[in-house]
Design a protein around this nucleic acid. Structure first.
Length: 554
RNA sequence: UGCGGCAUCGCCAAGCGGUAAGGCAACGGACUCUGACUCCGUCAUUACCUAGGUUCGAAUCCUAGUGCCGCAGCCA
């Protein structure tokens, strides 16, 4: 784990040096307004790993302070995704920011009583206008800033009791209208919203703002390190102001890191939602999406995603991490674990001429060439076989070590064969290939010791099963989506960069019989092809998680 | 514009005044019944955004620039 150290650990180490009794406590606080994705995975990893490394505790807390944006659909998916990702339940438990609404209210009352908050009657437009367009100048002071404690208390309770319409009043922290950091210019900490809350129902018509609620949530749960992304760095002084002024003894510390960007994709919830709603993709679990839901369906392992975000590192600089790093993490893992199987994507029939009709022989193939303990399975060898069309060439390029006219090639785990005749269809495509097997090479090695350069995979035509295989590629053609063109309103035109070949469906691929019992979610290496996972959504379908590396260049 | 942040190999990223880790990618080669895996090698030397300065010594300290990102919701 030390190989993944970063500046956050330095901060925690220093805090521990000053206070050896500190019990490290972190949290991941998603707003339940969308599905978790690779960016979330990074935030989860950082908070989870810090807690883990120091023997601390890690909470999941839904940041659900804005009822108009949130939904239980997301609450459920987030819980499922995070448990899947880290392989356990959050050690500290699951919490809801909205469960602290009473507490937030009490703290707000305390601030009022301390003369540190006031009810403001300025409209939304006026608030903006008072702040001014030139932020170098101080804000105009709200005319309601000097209301008495009694008046503020009365008004705030009446806000709570639903006596005022939305937008008519806010509660503001009395901090500093001329502070260069505009977050400190008497920020609004409570607003009126007549909205049904997914968890609190209609109990409230006033809701605390993030900047007020979040530090209270952290402090209440005993969070020691509130690790979030860089865009909250400007909020830190306000976070600290709240912590200092609500009068809590154990003060959490907020620190920020850069969020992750990944090539050829976006984790913008807004655009993800558009892709789903406009049915450009097949739901939130479309295997081309960067959501954890989708990555899971595609077949990525949670550990490969964790090692991806760990190896991408944690810093404060803008970054664009190569998606191939994620693929490398997956290959690393599955190369070790995934049983090998045969799948012929584009079958071409091969007839072994020197074998009689009805001939049948059984070969035992290892499930993993480097791990004999993973066992073997039996496959049938018959007169008629399938090979992949890519493994034959009518007009072979140089160094084509596969099947070609008059060339010898090894059928993996079986005989060495020589192609003697090519039967073509009317359009010139290959109908079938006729071969002669060297029947003495049954273990794959020629008796005379001659070298056979190529080995290809094959299946008996007698018992091969039909399946559908889905080959996925990047959803977008633009490497850095932050460079996408924008329209006049500044909206990125991601849809101009959709990759038309992001999904290729192969019908009637052939798989070996042992794959007939594969369970949803099972992962295999289809030999010489890639890593595949049995799909959870469609029957008899395999998703390509990632291809094998291929250094063959014609 | 104001405030905040960041700038080290194609992409991430270590480095915390003592002479540029590692990963991904790429490129050679060995091995191979997966053109996979594995292994070996190459891959920052008027070098660490630029220009000055301090120092015996600077990616690391100072000064002045430049570039990029974020924020400027009664969103989180």
């Amino acid at each position: 784990m030390d190989e993944f150290r970063n500046f956050i650990y330095d901060i925690v180490d220093e805090d521990l040096r000053k206070n050896p009794d500190l019990k490290i406590h972190t949290r991941f606080p998603p707003e339940p307004n969308g599905y978790l994705h690779l960016g979330s995975a990074k935030a989860i990893m950082i908070n989870y790993d810090v807690a883990k490394k120091y023997g601390g505790v890690f909470n999941l807390r839904y940041d659900d302070t804005n009822p108009t944006r949130e939904d239980t659909e997301y609450v459920d998916s987030i819980y499922k995704d995070i448990c899947w990702l880290i392989g356990e339940e959050p050690s500290g438990g699951v919490f809801y920011g909205s469960d602290y609404f009473d507490l937030c209210f009490e703290y707000a009352v305390k601030l009022i009583k301390d003369g540190k908050a006031y009810v403001c009657d300025l409209s939304k437009e006026d608030v903006i206008e008072y702040k001014g367009t030139d932020r170098a100048e101080a804000s105009r002071v709200s005319p309601y800033r000097d209301r008495t404690v009694e008046e503020n208390l009365d008004l705030f309770y009446r806000m709570k009791n639903g006596e005022f319409p939305e937008g008519s009043h806010t509660l503001r922290a009395k901090i500093d209208p001329s502070n260069p950091n505009t977050y400190l210019r008497d920020p609004i900490i409570y607003r009126i919203k007549y909205a049904h809350h997914h968890r609190q129902g209609d109990k409230w018509c006033i809701y605390p703002m993030y900047d007020f609620a979040h530090p209270i949530q952290d402090a209440t749960e005993g969070i020691t390190h509130s690790l979030c992304s860089l865009e909250f760095e400007n909020h830190r002084p306000l976070y600290e102001w709240v912590v200092d002024n609500i009068g809590i003894e154990k003060k959490p510390k907020q620190r920020e890191f850069a969020r992750i960007n990944v090539t050829y994709t976006t984790v913008s919830k807004r655009y993800l939602r558009q892709l789903v709603e406009q049915k450009i993709v097949d739901g939130w679990d479309d295997p081309r999406l960067p959501t954890l839901f989708a990555l899971r369906r595609r077949g990525f392992t949670p550990s490969s995603i964790m090692s991806f975000v760990r190896s991408a590192g944690v810093s404060k600089s803008n970054n664009l991490v190569d998606i191939r790093m994620l693929e490398a993490c997956l290959r690393d893992e599955l190369n070790e674990n995934a049983p090998r199987r045969v799948c012929i994507l584009h079958p071409v029939k091969v007839v072994i001429d020197n074998l009689p009709e009805g001939y049948e022989e059984t070969f035992e193939l290892p499930n993993h060439p480097q791990h004999p303990e993973m066992g073997t399975r039996k496959v049938k060898f018959t007169r008629e076989l399938y090979i992949d069309e890519d493994d034959f060439a009518l007009d072979p390029p140089p160094k084509f070590f596969r099947m070609k006219k008059d060339g010898e090639v090894r059928l993996m785990g079986a005989y060495i064969v020589k192609c003697s005749e090519i039967v073509q269809n009317g359009d010139g495509s290959v109908k079938e290939l006729h071969c002669t097997a060297d029947l003495e090479s049954g273990n794959g090695n020629p008796v005379d010791g001659r070298k056979i350069k190529g080995t290809i995979h094959w299946l008996s035509a007698n018992d091969a099963l039909d399946t559908t295989v889905k080959l996925y590629d990047r959803l977008f053609t633009l490497e850095d989506l932050s460079q996408a063109e924008t329209d006049e309103n500044g909206n990125a035109l991601y849809f101009n960069y959709l990759n038309p070949e992001s999904l290729i469906t192969v019908e009637h691929a052939k798989i070996e019989p042992s794959l007939g019992t594969a369970q949803v979610g099972d992962r295999f290496q289809f030999v010489r092809t890639g890593y595949f996972c049995k799909d959870s959504k469609y029957e008899n379908t395999f998703n390509r998680i990632v291809s094998l590396k291929d250094s063959f260049k014609c």
